[in-house]
């Protein structure tokens, strides 16, 4: 297969992946964020402590995470059909993708929100803030750098899941690599597709890390990444100052 034959396939598949992953990420964040926050709030000692809700939600999330995606995809066919009218194609695949990612993302949110210093929560309560205020003004904004990292991780996972969405004719890069490439012995196409996937994932990870680091640094909790710090340490700051002083003394 020549490059000009591959190109339209790749373009279409890229768009399909972007479309599926984009929408399912959106749904995942919109539903998974409150779920993760709820897990923290209802936990023992939480602001809305409720052991029953916490246990039930926790179990559902665990169950969701333990299912292999391909099984979830098939198990959800009736449900997908109910809300999308069909279970086949790009649009329909968003349902299983989001449902597969929500428990995963919710756990990441839970971990991120748990890290927020309880003193901040108390400070806002002491100034008369409601639980909703605490969530909106403290838990989410203070956890934001970690939440951005969680979204990045989820997007990368969703790209992986979306390869399996080929099973319901959703298209996308993963599907292209498997069906057109691997199964039809188009090794060239397969490797090119895999390379495109790798680049896409690297870019997403890079962008996500950059945003998280910028937020983190603004809060002053980390400073630059260790790698950058190493480079900085080599800058001859102190010697320069010392020679300045020496020059002045002379």
């Amino acid at each position: 297969m020549t490059w000009s034959e591959m190109q339209p396939l790749l373009t279409q598949a890229s768009w399909d992946t972007l479309y599926m992953v984009g929408w399912s990420t959106l749904v995942t964040v919109v539903l998974g964020l409150p779920l993760g926050v709820l897990l923290v709030l209802t936990d023992r000692g939480g602001l809305l402590q409720n052991v029953v809700v916490n246990k039930v939600v926790g179990q559902v999330v665990n169950f969701g995470r333990s299912l292999p995606f391909i099984i979830l995809l098939i198990a959800l066919i009736p449900f997908t059909k109910m809300i999308m009218g069909t279970y086949i194609g790009r649009d329909a695949s968003i349902v299983p993708l989001a449902i597969g990612a929500i428990p995963f993302f919710a756990r990441l949110v839970e971990t991120a929100v748990r890290e927020v210093d309880h003193g901040l929560v108390e400070a806002v309560q002491a100034m008369g803030g409601s639980t909703w205020t605490v969530v909106r003004r403290v838990l989410v904004p203070e956890a934001l750098p970690s939440l951005v990292s969680s979204v990045t991780t989820t997007v990368v996972a969703l790209i992986g899941y979306s390869a399996m969405a080929g099973a319901v004719a959703a298209g996308g890069l993963g599907d292209l690599a498997i069906k057109q490439g691997y199964l039809r012995f188009e090794t060239g196409l397969m490797w090119v597709t895999v390379a495109v996937l790798a680049v896409v994932i690297a870019l997403i990870q890079y962008a996500g890390d950059a945003v998280a680091r910028a937020l983190h640094r603004r809060g002053g909790r980390g400073g630059p990444a260790p790698r950058l710090r190493l480079l900085k340490a080599k800058e001859p700051d102190a010697p320069a100052g010392a020679t300045d002083e020496a020059r002045q003394a002379a």
Binding site: G119, L120, A123, A126, M127, P141, E142, L144, G220, R221
Partner: peptide
Amino acid sequence: IGMVFQHFNLLSS
């Protein structure tokens, strides 16, 4: 009622 804390408890964001 105002309150101040040992560890300041300012929102870093």
